[in-house]
């Protein structure tokens, strides 16, 4: 099933549980800060980013 043609790194596999936990906390607190800022009216207008969001749309991109 898995083709072990390169070493994923045992430490790297184990550490991901911790990395994910840290990421969870960071994402949660950033989301919270964003909500607070929006509530207080501090939120900046969305900048004109060079790169878009992480989401990929299914199918409906014909007119893009």
């Amino acid at each position: 099933m898995h083709f072990l043609y390169f070493d994923p790194g045992l430490g790297a596999m184990i550490v991901q549980a911790i990395v994910a936990a840290v990421a969870g906390v960071v994402l949660f607190s950033k989301g919270l800060m964003y909500k607070i800022k929006t509530l207080l009216g501090f939120s900046k207008n969305q900048e004109d980013d060079m790169f878009d969001d992480i989401e990929i749309k299914d199918q409906d991109t014909e007119n893009k």
């Binding site: 991901q16 549980a17 994910a20 936990a21 990421a23 969870g24 994402l27 992480i54």
Partner: peptide, 15 residues
């Protein structure tokens, strides 16, 4: 071998 939920992995990717 370690275990990681899909949600956990998505958190890594998003961060």
């Amino acid at each position: 071998a370690s275990v990681l939920s899909k949600k956990g992995q998505l958190n890594i990717i998003q961060s």
